[in-house]
Amino acid sequence: MSTNSGRAGGAQAAAPAAAGLRGLRHAVSGFLVWREASVILVAVLLILYFELTNANFLTNANIVTVSQFVAAPAIIACGEIMLLICKEIDLSAGQTFALAPFLVYFGAKFGLPVIPAILVALLICASIGLSIGLITVLLDVPSFVTTLGAFFLITGITLTISRGFPATPPGGHVLAGILGAFGYSEIIWAFLIVFGTHVLLRHTRWGLHTSATGGNELAAAEAGINVKRIKVGNFILVAVLAGFTGIIEAYRVGSNDPLAGGANMMFFGVASGVIGGTALTGGSGTIIGGLIGAIVLGVLQDGFTLQGINAFLFDGIIGAAILIAMIVNIRLALWQRGTVR
């Protein structure tokens, strides 16, 4: 039994002659022990493929478009990953996404300035998350069921208050630009939220306790962690992030759509997380991986659109591409851990 506890990967090659080569090898093996490595490789390969087959792929205009495909699922993924890690899921995130801009709209209509209206809307989203969380942990209803109920319930509320009509989000150009109308603002929000959630997961007790709760709920509770509080908190986080994403998306598009988001948005968020390496079985996951997962999905959608794939075939091609990309990703990850047979 070796006892060199915890000193892995510390040494730096110093001999000047072989330093370059050794440095490279160090970098490569360093890269491969990184959990997100395989999905990063898949993303790079996809970008290369679309750049080589299409002259317009890496142009500014198209990068803006890709970023807009990526931003919303990436933010939703942040919340869903935290929930998946503590072994729960929120199927209703896409519904909260659609509701939130209408809450802002009606808040403004009742005389609130726009920013307080947004804060009130996010508070209402938080209370939705709180209710879902409490029903799940206190009444022992599986979150799959709780949030399936919430899925339809929230759609009903959105359709009722909007009467099924779209609305124009309130506020001036500057605010709209900061929130989403300026080309890159949505992806900037996404990066900020990804960074914040990454720190939350990796560098705070909350994040560690979230992982512990999903990894072994009994052991976490034995150690004195309030696992119910952790779960409810993460339900609130998802709901607030989904609401915020719905709001910035409405400002980007310039219209509140009562049928925006929905199951598609939720599944893109969950899929981004899973593609990025978050386990559906709980206990482990990465926020950065979720961002890259969202990039993979965004690049696929945008790339095939640019290539002018037949509209009827589009979903089929995307589906097949996701499958192939994920098979590559999973085989790479197994190979990287040296467990491939």
């Binding site: 052991a219 709980g282 206990g283």
Partner: peptide, 10 residues
């Protein structure tokens, strides 16, 4: 306890 003690994913 043998099984309850640790979180395997950490």
């Amino acid at each position: 306890y043998q099984d309850l003690a640790l979180v395997n994913t950490l």
